[in-house]
Design a protein around this nucleic acid. Structure first.
Lengths: 206, 206
DNA sequence: GGTATCATGTGAACGGCGCTCACATTAGGT
DNA sequence: ACCTAATGTGAGCGCCGTTCACATGATACC
């Protein structure tokens, strides 16, 4: 079960496992490339090309570790936009933070979401689940009476889709304020719908 | 300007340019891998590893050609869901077609949207623009008085995001009918919002 | 203290990759 | 028939992921 997550602090190098992830993220953000070469990471960390294999099964495993860091940083970013949102406006501000994170750290974001998620990585699976739960928690607080599932899916999808369309240049994204307005408008629209008709399989009419 | 799109029919091989794209898509869908190797494509097409470079500048160019085919097939698929949607229900059926396309041809979809779009590929840029215009056309027909920009952005983003979250396993996607219901519910929610309050800076109501 | 043991690190090597180049072949225009 | 340009080839470069036999350092046990 990928035991010793806590590094033994220092054998020769001192937590090379974490150092490799750090080096990988640096390379990612400097080069702008989504591809990351294990050999390049090893060079950056100052070890031989074979060394990473002591700490990660293969390239995919290192990438998953990088993605997991990304999920954690995204979660921090969302939380710092608003620690515990419970109104549509606060929720919208978190959505804006999500999209801006994608735009400010595009390569990391693509690593996190641009490829099939490796289900063998406990770290990665746990980190994505945390983001999902965070979104869902917001929705539950903001609309306690709504259909949590449908609504939180819709909101996450909307925000996630906005992030990707901006990232891919399908929506103009040069000025953050424009992006923020667009995201806010879209989220408000969806939320207004929810107020108007609480849930699909619910009472009255639509 | 990447002239002779129309192949001269047959020199030695007979439109190898198109044959390479076909081979690439076959490999993609057989292997389930997002990566595609130019050498493997060449083997599949029965030519030497150097041959593709007569027809495509580099690997990226071939990938873009593959993506362009994907955009065209997606457009066909949407059109066959409904040729000219003009009601929320019809729009929702197109949205479902979009997400199901992503789930049925995951590798192709990832090639289309999972990496930075190469702006040097006329073919690719044109094909993505076509999809964007198609979505926008639907919105204009369905809600002539609404804020086209904001609404078509929101709808595309929502649908695109739903596609990716399903694809990444963040939303359960084993039974297409469940996916269809989820997508329909989300789209209906967004559209209802638009009816209730047409647009941020728009006239009366609808 | 001495030594066995295991985690940590290395260099060389394998095959596959993207890509280039010098060269062969074929098709078409004149 | 011949020249030219399009089409196709094989060898080769450097990089990649990965593995392996081997070195080195830290610790555990006597």
């Amino acid at each position: 079960m990928s035991t010793s997550k806590a590094p033994k602090a220092a054998y020769h190098h001192g937590d090379l496992r974490a150092a490799l992830v750090r080096a990988a993220i640096e390379l990612l953000e400097e080069s702008g490339e989504t591809e990351l070469s294990l050999r390049a990471v090893a060079r950056r960390a100052g070890v031989s090309p074979a060394e990473p294999y002591r700490h990660y099964a293969d390239r995919e495993a290192l990438v998953s570790a990088v993605a997991a860091v990304g999920y954690r940083e995204l979660a921090e970013r969302l939380a710092s936009a608003h620690p515990s949102p419970s109104t549509p406006e606060e929720l919208a501000s978190v959505a804006v933070a999500y999209v801006l994170f994608a735009l400010q750290r595009p390569t990391l974001f693509r690593i996190m979401f641009g490829e099939p998620c490796d289900r063998d990585s406990d770290e990665r699976v746990a980190a994505t689940a945390a983001v999902a739960l965070y979104v869902r928690g917001i929705v539950e607080r903001t609309f306690p009476q709504a259909d949590d599932d449908a609504l939180s899916n819709a909101i996450w999808a909307l925000v996630h889709g906005l992030a990707f369309l901006h990232l891919d240049g399908k929506l103009e994204a040069s000025r953050p304020s424009v992006v923020a307005d667009r995201v806010t408008a879209a989220v408000q629209a969806l939320l207004t719908a929810t107020r108007a008709q609480p849930a699909p399989a619910a009472p009255g009419q639509a």
